[in-house]
Design a protein around this nucleic acid. Structure first.
Lengths: 100, 100
DNA sequence: CCTTTAAATCGAAAAATCACGATCTACATA
DNA sequence: TATGTAGATCGTGATTTTTCGATTTAAAGG
C-alpha cells in the first residue's frame, strides 16, 4: 500500500493516462454529461467516450492508475466510479520535488 | 526545444534514469572518485561503474535524458560531461504540480 | 602513423507495453 | 429464470523499450 515511485512514473508514461488524471481535476468541465452525480466519482464508461479507445483498453488504463495509487475505485451496483487519490498524488509530487 | 511533458515522463519511466538524475544532485556523494573536477559535470563512464550496465546501454540512457531536456552535455576532448538542466527540471516539476 | 581510450551508433534478441475483440462476472430488471 | 448492461479479464498480435556486443568516430599519446 506504500507508494512506489517507479510504478507511479510508469503509470504516468502514457499520455492517455495523464489525460485521465487531468480531466478528473475538473469533472464538471469534462464529464458534464454523466448520468450519475459527479460526487460519486467518474463512471468508467465516461472515459471511453472521451478518449475513443475500446472498453478493455480503458479498463486496463484505469487499473494501471489504480494500482499505482493515483486513483480510487468505488463500485456501486454495476458501475465503477473513479476518483483521484489526492493524498497519494500530493505525496508523489512532493517526493518527486524533493528527490528528483 | 520546448519542453515536452510526455517525453519527460517517458524518460522518467525507467528507474535507472531516475537514479542518474538523483545521483547528480550530490555529485560529491556519488561520484567522488571521478578523476576530473566535478565542476566539469559527471563523466559518462562514471555511470557505468555505478549502475553496472554496459557502455552502450548507459550511453542510450543518457541520450534519452538529454533528448528530454533533463540533462545537458559538455564534450571536452574524448570525454562527455553531463549535468542536470535545473531550469527544465524545475519547469517540468512546476508544470506537473499545476496540471496533474 | 599506430595504439589506446571514450563515447556514440548499429543490429539484433528479449522483454514490456499497448490495443483490440471475445469472453466472463456481477448486478439489475423484466 | 432469461436478458441486458457495465466492467474486468483473457488471448493475441503489433509496437516500443531495454539490453548487449560489435563497430564506428574522435581525440590523445607514444
Amino acid at each position: 500500500m506504500t507508494i512506489d515511485k517507479t510504478e507511479i512514473l510508469k503509470a504516468l508514461a502514457h499520455p492517455t493516462r495523464v489525460s485521465f488524471l487531468e480531466w478528473m481535476r475538473e469533472p464538471g468541465q469534462h464529464f458534464c454529461e454523466q448520468a450519475h452525480p459527479l460526487e460519486m466519482g467518474i463512471c468508467a464508461n465516461q472515459f471511453e467516450k472521451k478518449c475513443g479507445l475500446s472498453q478493455s483498453t480503458v479498463s486496463a488504463h484505469l487499473a494501471t492508475l489504480e494500482k499505482a495509487g493515483l486513483l480510487k475505485t468505488n463500485r456501486v451496483g454495476q458501475w465503477a466510479f473513479y476518483r483521484r487519490d489526492e493524498e497519494n498524488i500530493a505525496s508523489f509530487l512532493n517526493d518527486l520535488k524533493s528527490t528528483l
